[in-house]
Design a protein around this nucleic acid. Structure first.
Lengths: 241, 241
DNA sequence: CGCCCCTTTGAATCTAATCAAAAGCTGTGG
DNA sequence: CCACAGCTTTTGATTAGATTCAAAGGGGCG
C-alpha cells in the first residue's frame, strides 16, 4: 500500500466531481506541501510528475515578460482553494509558466501515474477532470478580454468580483475577503502599474463599492462593484451546489 | 455503417496525434461544413453535439464585450487549418464564446458520442486530445500576456509571428501569408482600435520587417519581426515533424 | 535601529483612443 | 456600364488614460 495523506476537502471547483469520484481521487494524494509567500513552487519548462490541489492560500501562475534587463512579472492566473493548480501538467508534461505562492499555502500532491490509473477505470471522471482544466482556459479568455478591452477601473473591479465569486464557492460568502495581494500583484494581473492600481483603489473606495487595505477586500456595495465590473459569471461554469 | 465523409488531412497541430490515432479518429467525421466570411458558426451558450476541425480558412473565437448600446467584439482566439476549433465543447458541453468564420472556411465535424467511443478504447488518445485543448489554453495565456504587457507595435508583431508559426506547421513555410484579417480584426485581437492598427502597420512596413495589405502578410525580414515581437515559440508546444 | 518593501501623492510624458473626414474597393441594381 | 451603398483603409487633430519619475511616509522584521 503506497503512502497516503489525509485527503483534501472537496470544496470549490472540485464540486465538479461527484462525491464518489472525489472519494476515489482524493485517496490517491500522497504528499502535502507547504510554501511561504513568495516562494516559487515550480519553474516553467521543468517536467512534473505530480499535480497539486490548493488547500489554503493563494497561488499565482506567472510568466516573466520581456527577458530584457528588468524582468517584469505578469500573472496569467490566480488559484483559490479547491482549485487544481497544475492539472494541465498531467497531459502536457511541462508548463509554459512558473507557479508561485502568493500567500503562505498548503497543497496536496497526486502523482500522475495514479491519476492515470483511476482515469483508466472511469471515463466520466476523465471528462470532468478535463473540464476543470478547460474552466481555467475560460478564465484565461476572460483575463485576455479584460486586459484587451477594459479600462483600469473596470479591470480591477472585474478581477475582484471574479475572485470573490470563486472564493464564495470555496470558503463561503462573506463581505470581507483576505486576499493578501499586494498592489503590485493586482497590477501584474491587470496589466497596470502599481502606481495606477493605487489610484484606482482610491477611486473604488470613493465610489463606495469596496475598500482594499492590507490585503483585505471589504465589499461595501456588491451590486455596485458587479455593475462597475460588468460581470457575468457564466464563464466560470460554476458547479451546482 | 454510419455516414462518413472523406477524412481531413493530419496537418498542423493534429500531428500531436500519432498517424494511427489520427486514422482511427478521422474515420469518425460525419459531416463537412462550409461557411462564408463573417458567418457565425456557433453561438455562446448553445449546447453542442459535434466538434469541428478546421480544414481551410481562418476561424475566430469571439466574445461580445460590454453588452451596452455598441456591442464591441473581441477575439479571444484564432484557429488555423489543422486546429480543432471547439474540441473543448466535448467536455464542457457549452461554450462561453461565439465561433465565427473570418474567411470562407471548410470544417469537418465529428459527433461527441463517437469521440467518446474511440477515447474509451485508447487512453493515450484521450490524453493527446486533452493536450490539444490545453495548447489552446497556453495560447490564451500568451494573448493575455500580450494585451497586458506589450505596447501596440509589439502586440501586432507578436500576433503575426504566432500566426505564421502556426501556419508554417499547417501549410508549410513561406514568406507570404494570406490571412484575410481586416485591420479591425487585428485590433479586435490585440485590444487596439483599427485606426491605431493602421498606424502600427505603417510602422512595421517602414521598419522593413513586414508589409500587410489586402489581407496578405509579406514577411520581408523575419528575424527583425521575431525580434520586435520578442517571440519565443515554446508556449505553442509544437509537435515534432 | 535600520533596511526593505509597500503605499501614497504629485508632476511630466507618452501612448492610444476618439472624433472627423476623405479616399479606395467591391458588389448591387438600374 | 455606371451610380451608389457600404466597408476598409488612411491621415490629421484633439483628448483621455496610464506610465514613468520622483519623493515621502508607513510597517514589519532581523
Amino acid at each position: 500500500m503506497p503512502d497516503r495523506i489525509a485527503p483534501p476537502d472537496r470544496i470549490g471547483m472540485l464540486r465538479h466531481l461527484s462525491p464518489q469520484q472525489w472519494k476515489i481521487t482524493s485517496q490517491e494524494f500522497d504528499e502535502r506541501r507547504v510554501h511561504t509567500a513568495g516562494e516559487v513552487i515550480s519553474d516553467r519548462g521543468v517536467p512534473l510528475s505530480h499535480s497539486l490541489v490548493l488547500e489554503r492560500g493563494l497561488v499565482g501562475r506567472r510568466i516573466l515578460s520581456g527577458r530584457q534587463r528588468v524582468a517584469k512579472h505578469y500573472l496569467v492566473a490566480l488559484q483559490v482553494p479547491g482549485d487544481f493548480v497544475d492539472l494541465h501538467a498531467y497531459p502536457l508534461g511541462v508548463l509554459d509558466h512558473d507557479i508561485v505562492a502568493i500567500t503562505d499555502v498548503t497543497l496536496a500532491a497526486i502523482p500522475h501515474h495514479r491519476l492515470s490509473a483511476i482515469m483508466a477505470a472511469d471515463q466520466d471522471l476523465t471528462r470532468r477532470l478535463w473540464s476543470l482544466t478547460l474552466v481555467d482556459a475560460a478564465i484565461h479568455r476572460q483575463w485576455s478580454l479584460r486586459n484587451g478591452t477594459m479600462r483600469a477601473l473596470q479591470r480591477v473591479a472585474h478581477l475582484f468580483v471574479e475572485l470573490i465569486t470563486r472564493l464564495d464557492l470555496a470558503v463561503g460568502r462573506a463581505e470581507s475577503y483576505r486576499l493578501d495581494l499586494s498592489q503590485r500583484h493586482i497590477g501584474d494581473a491587470c496589466g497596470l502599474s502599481s502606481v495606477h492600481v493605487n489610484r484606482i483603489l482610491r477611486d473604488l473606495r470613493e465610489a463606495g463599492s469596496c475598500t482594499y487595505a492590507k490585503g483585505v477586500l471589504v465589499v461595501t456595495d456588491r451590486a455596485a462593484l458587479v455593475q462597475i465590473a460588468g460581470f457575468d459569471d457564466r464563464y466560470l461554469y460554476l458547479p451546482r451546489v
